[in-house]
């Protein structure tokens, strides 16, 4: 399996990455190589191997259901470019 230029443009758009048109052929090669490696790994018989969801062989730790956070809105909003009436402002999104 390999990717073409359209795939690259689409993935870049989905990931909101700005890429240089001139670099696209190189991305096509690099990503195709990675997929070739995956294809090679696909040949290994993994029927009796449990898929690994995480590199650490451990289980999720759970926390008690308690409110431990205090309101720090002012500190967080100091980082935001635009706020009003307690809201973060972003360019208009309309449905």
């Amino acid at each position: 399996m390999s990717v073409d230029q359209t795939d690259i443009t689409k993935v870049a758009l989905l990931a909101r990455l700005e890429i240089d048109e001139a670099d696209v052929p190189q991305y096509v090669d690099n990503l195709s190589n990675i997929l070739a490696l995956v294809e090679q790994m696909n040949e290994v018989d993994t029927d009796r191997v449990v898929p690994m969801a995480h590199p650490l062989d451990a289980a999720q730790r759970l926390r008690p259901d308690e409110v431990t956070e205090v309101d720090q809105r002012d500190r967080f909003q100091a980082l935001a470019p635009q706020v009003e009436a307690g809201l973060y402002l972003v360019p208009k999104v309309i449905e």
Binding site: D65, E66, T68, E69, D71, Q72, F76, Q77, L87
Partner: peptide, 23 residues
Amino acid sequence: TRSKIFSGASTAYGAAPNTQACA
């Protein structure tokens, strides 16, 4: 639940905007 699924912020309804949104 009282707190959020992955954080200790409150889930109470109707609070002032962003006062229950932690890091």
